[in-house]
Design a protein around this nucleic acid. Structure first.
Lengths: 130, 130
DNA sequence: CTGCATCCCCACGGATACTG
DNA sequence: CAGTATCCGTGGGGATGCAG
């Protein structure tokens, strides 16, 4: 049904009854799932940005969450942090190769979201009406 | 860098400074992000399952969350619910065409997770050590 | 078997103030 | 400019019990 990837592959499927804490899929999905990670990765897909630029690009994130999410992404090796010893200091964030490698699957998902958002809204309306 | 999708498309990008509540990408990502939705969609990719079978397939979900997540997915039109008037009642859940359409992008992501989980674990270890 | 209702906890995340 | 520290509210979600 699609050339992207085979949805029916039996391996790499989560939660077949083993320890959920070790499931790679859950591990990644949990990070994807947090409120800001994907948004920041997507925002950095254009190129490196400084802290303040990121704030402006994602207006409704608090600096607390921005700092924290950036640190988590850095910890996972998805972004790198470069400090320029200027006055005042400038800090630049950019996607690592690993970070760039998630852009394609992520874009597939956002593309899907964009393509099917209308259907979903309709389905919700119908469900709430019935 | 990839033939899957073009990460650099400027449209369909979220949070360029407008109302975040109306952003389709966030809307979908929020659902993807919740703890169980994607897991259930993936579990149903094999074929229809009954309530109890889903519980067994995802051992660490509470029935509260199972019921609730299934209802949310149904509301969004991703799964359908079929009641068989037997005694005791049997209820079957299956992916709708819309639900099946998300399998490909989702699989791309789980594939990525599986492929790069090792790198991520390494990055974390390095970060925590440094 | 398939659900709803209730109680309750805790971690996600927002607001604000302070530092190098 | 780029953070850190603190306080605190909200709600996601687990445990348990009851009902068709």
């Amino acid at each position: 049904m699609s050339a992207l990837a085979d949805p029916d592959r039996k391996d790499l499927r989560p939660s077949a009854g083993f320890d959920p804490g070790q499931c790679p899929v859950r591990d990644v999905l949990d990070r994807i799932g947090d409120k800001w990670s994907t948004l920041l990765v997507l925002t950095l897909s254009d190129g490196p940005l400084r802290f303040g630029a990121l704030r402006r690009a994602v207006p409704d994130i608090s600096q607390r969450m921005l700092t924290q999410t950036l640190r988590d992404l850095q910890r996972d090796g998805l972004i790198s942090r470069h400090v320029f010893p200027t006055q005042p200091p400038a800090v630049e964030y950019r996607l690592t190769p690993l970070g760039r490698s998630i852009l394609a699957p992520l874009s597939a998902l956002t593309r899907w979201a964009d393509d099917h958002h209308g259907e979903i809204r309709q389905a919700r309306a119908a469900f709430d009406a019935g």
